[in-house]
């Protein structure tokens, strides 16, 4: 006869039953409250971003107090229209001018105010360019809105000596701590998108 002595892990006791029930209830509550918690934290995080004054350098002076979005395209993948310098587009779609001194190519759309939701601002501002800066994105439950295409350039099209490329968001010149969907904007804020690699 062969006897096998095995440590015994017996069935759940009353503490485990309470823990099972309680943990499911708590999990449901946390998932329901998560968007509100995240909004609150994002709002606090927005206070830590650098001053927006310096991020207006190179932009039209009439936008100094306004919200601006800039999209910068890589040298190897220039935009079909905004391929020379950075084109400055006002809220009505009119072109204010082109700045060739920024050593970048792309477009900035500015002159806005009153936006607090980053995604709303981005969609409204890029729409002003009449489709030239159309935005493509999907929603991931963990990351929120993930921007994959701006102005016809999909991040998956970028090739080079790296693992992958993505559209990277900056807030007032610094790396944004949250995605565009969680970004809380203040008056005079400048956000910009650049292709980054990993």
């Amino acid at each position: 006869m062969c006897q096998v002595k095995v440590p015994v892990f017996v069935g759940a006791d009353s503490v485990s039953y309470k823990l099972r029930l309680g943990s499911i209830v708590l999990l449901v509550v946390v998932i329901i409250l998560l968007p509100f918690l995240q909004d609150s934290v994002n709002e606090k995080a927005a206070r830590f971003v650098s001053d927006n004054e310096s991020s207006h350098v190179g932009l039209p002076t009439e936008w100094n107090e306004n919200q601006v979005i800039c999209i910068n395209f890589p040298e190897e993948y220039p935009h079909s229209v905004y391929s020379s310098g950075v084109t400055m587009i006002d809220t009505d779609g009119s072109i204010i001018g082109v700045n060739h001194d920024l050593n970048l190519t792309g477009a900035c759309v500015g002159g806005f105010d009153g936006y607090t939701d980053g995604m709303d601002f981005m969609m409204d501002a890029t729409r002003v360019a009449g489709g030239h800066l159309a935005v493509g994105y999907f929603v991931n439950p963990n990351w929120g809105e993930w921007i994959h295409t701006i102005g016809g350039l999909n991040e998956k099209e970028i090739e080079g000596d790296f693992n992958g490329a993505y559209w990277s968001l900056s807030h007032n010149g610094g790396y944004s701590m949250v995605g565009i969907g969680g970004l809380v904007m203040a008056e005079g804020d400048v956000i910009s998108w650049n292709i980054a690699t990993w």
Partner: peptide, 25 residues
């Protein structure tokens, strides 16, 4: 950056408690 992730850390933690309660034994 870590502060911004705290709500997601909390969801992970509470989820872990639920998995521990149901799967440990």
């Amino acid at each position: 950056y870590i502060m911004v992730g705290l709500p997601f850390d909390l969801a992970h933690g509470v989820g872990n408690v639920a998995f521990a309660a149901w799967l440990s034994e």
